[in-house]
Design a protein around this nucleic acid. Structure first.
Lengths: 119, 119
DNA sequence: TTACTACCTGAGCATCTGTTCATGTAATAA
DNA sequence: TTATTACATGAACAGATGCTCAGGTAGTAA
């Protein structure tokens, strides 16, 4: 029995045109990856709580640690990720770093998500 | 040395009013959890590709498996999650299940995310 | 300088996630 | 009935994730 490697799954309900159209209109890998990273960052309960809190008012690492009930180290790790994705930024005042939301998109994403789960 | 358990982190840059306000306006646990689940579901590259593809046109499991280059089983697992979160729904035509986006929110969430990463 | 504060970083580890594989199920047709 | 098709499900496993702990760094002040 000869085996052939083809770009085809085992079932026969093939709508090749649909697959082709999906490939044509698919996001580029970097756009898809970037969007996935953004959603994943907002997909952790504690990070989401951080973003929701910073939506109202800027806070320092220590405040956020108390608010969440986790170590400052844990908050710092999460804030680094959020900074890298440009979701938050900070300003220094003496020894204290105050973090805030960096972006109006984040606020709107949270609003939309809230609408969805309440439908 | 006596140790006391207090709701307080070790640093002294305490803005208790900020922590209190954050707690007052914080999301309820179930809302926070629900939003996090939604974002997490959209935070996987393959699930995001599925949602993006279904935005255009309904597709069956087999089509999606070919499109992504993974097994039908993998797609089926992902679709179950997306169904549970009401992100997709399906219709049966004979033996074939056609999946489609269930919600306009998802489309807008993807648009907003795309805007964010292109800023 | 030294001491202190607020924050950052890497290591380690328990838990979670996404995939494949093997098997099961519902609908269809001979 | 039996066979086939399209899809679902559970187990298993490699890899990712989020936390704590220990130690390090930048800014401030005596």
């Amino acid at each position: 029995m000869k085996k052939v490697l083809v770009d085809q799954c085992e079932c026969r309900c093939i709508h090749q045109e649909r697959v082709d159209r999906a490939r044509e209109s698919a996001l580029a890998d970097d756009a898809n990856s970037g969007m996935a990273q953004l959603f994943k960052a907002m997909g952790d309960p504690n990070r989401l709580r951080i973003l929701w809190a910073l939506q109202q008012e800027e806070m320092c690492v220590c405040d956020l640690a108390r608010f969440l009930g986790v170590s400052e180290s844990a908050v710092s790790h999460q804030l680094r990720l959020l900074r890298q994705l440009h979701l938050v930024s900070n300003r220094r005042q003496g020894p204290v770093l105050y973090y805030r939301l960096n972006d109006e998109h984040v606020r709107r994403l949270m609003e939309l998500a809230l609408e969805h789960i309440r439908e």
